[in-house]
Amino acid sequence: MKMMGLTVLAIAEAVALRGGTIESPIQHVLVQMPLLALAGMVGVHELRIRQYWAIPFLLLALTTFLFWMLPRNVDWALTPAGELAKYISLPLLLGLPLRLCWPRLGPILRGFLKANALSMLGVLGFLYTHAPIRICNSYLVSAQQDLGFAFLYLAAALACLWALPVLFGYPRWLPDAAAGCIKCGA
């Protein structure tokens, strides 16, 4: 029940951000879209799936992710049809399958995905901070550069979040964290 409440809350916030997404790509790509995916994740937080579903779910989540990573699709998400697709696909085709498959993936695969996420954020930062062209037609070049730096900050934050428990051990006040989301993105 609590989880359902959180789901609704996340979606509500995402909808409330509609105005912001038009002005700033950061609010769009780094706030609204993750909120939508998060809604899908918390919605199925308690559910468990069978092992053989893990890889199909992972592939589904990655495909959705890749789709929304492309700048032209971010542009499209500002049109009515694209917006609808975004509201449906991010929770249902990204957050939900990712959350369901995650505990079933091996620790090496999870570590690999995390490391890859860091590298890719770095690549995006690389490209967005320096591209001489507008990558998204809907946003200003200056906003695009801000987004690039935001990617880099996010990469740094995630790197710390994932590396600290490996370096220093799990904080004792987080007893069940270790079981659910073993960190190994050293």
Partner: peptide
């Protein structure tokens, strides 16, 4: 990367943390 993930994981499992 796979090599170090496995190495780091097993060291972590045996010693509790990499700083140890």
């Amino acid at each position: 990367l796979l090599y170090y993930l496995e190495l780091g994981r097993q060291i972590h499992a045996r010693y509790g943390s990499l700083v140890r």
